[in-house]
Design a protein around this nucleic acid. Structure first.
Ligand SMILES: [Mn+2]
Ligand SMILES: [Mn+2]
Ligand SMILES: [Zn+2]
Ligand SMILES: [Zn+2]
Lengths: 143, 143
DNA sequence: TAGTAAATGCAATTTTATGGCATCAAATTT
DNA sequence: AAATTTGATGCCATAAAATTGCATTTACTA
């Protein structure tokens, strides 16, 4: 599914700026989630560090990106499914965090239903699997 | 299950220090995981900030504590099950992060098996449910 | 009770994140 | 198309979080 930064911005009534478009392009690039530090490394020359923080925050608020935390507490971002909207994210699939290349994948696997103990009311569930990804399984190269 | 800091330290050939004992006591106190900042607030007067970082790290390495990340990328710690050992944690239960009081519970609910796509080899799985905990459900008090 | 190895505390540094504000750019209106 | 309005950006300063180095203290061993 090809993403179109310009339309995404329009749909969420966000101003169309060079920086915002670049961030979406960069994130849509890969099928995997990308971490804030990686983004900063890739875009640091063209976008101010602070601006990047702000863009990522508004994208998350608007339901354009979803944020996944990895083991180190680092934020990773991926394009939301079209079902996501402001203040209501749908991200009910399993994530996979490669312990070799650190990448986070949005798997096409739904999170199984889990029955909560009495008194606990879950409104969202997040599942992260850790291990070796397909790319690293194959080549077992550094990155 | 009553935990005994002194024996835990012995079992892992760690020196018995006042600070290490206090950290274990504090964490064992509650059935819920406690965050690094909370620990720092509680122990800040008796234990140096840096020492706390170091103790938590060695405890995690040794398989004494397990670390659970919350939505904000904050580390939370809970006593490992006896099955945990150095470099091999067993933490295959569901965690629950209350969005009201922020506490993280280790639920007595196993993570359902999930079949990975071809090429992905998972060695650990983490499931976090977000919502309102039993305490907050009941009283709905601030904390 | 030395002697040794390791943990602690403190200061300095680094890294990560946030806030304020002048400037700049996009959209809207005339 | 020019002017106006609205909001985004960049830069600087600040704050918060984490790490490092090292002198001192503490626990264990012989
Ligand atoms: Mn996802
Ligand atoms: Mn747990
Ligand atoms: Zn990988
Ligand atoms: Zn709660």
């Amino acid at each position: 599914m090809k993403i179109d930064p310009v339309n995404i911005l329009k749909d969420h009534s966000l101003k169309h700026t060079r920086q915002r478009v670049r961030v979406l392009e960069e994130i849509a690039m890969d099928a995997v989630a990308i971490s804030q530090p990686e983004l900063e490394k890739k875009l640091g020359k063209e976008i101010d560090r602070v601006t990047l923080y702000r863009i990522l925050n508004t994208y998350e608020d608007k339901g354009i990106l979803h944020r996944v935390m990895d083991l180190n507490g680092t934020a990773n971002y991926a394009i939301c499914s079209p079902a996501c909207s402001e203040h209501h994210h749908h991200d009910e699939h399993v994530h996979f965090n490669c312990t070799n290349c650190q990448k986070i994948y949005c798997l096409d696997v739904l999170i199984p239903a889990i029955k909560m103990p009495k008194g606990f009311k879950a409104s969202a569930i997040n599942t992260m699997a850790y291990g070796i990804c397909e790319k690293c399984s194959a080549g077992m190269k550094a990155d």
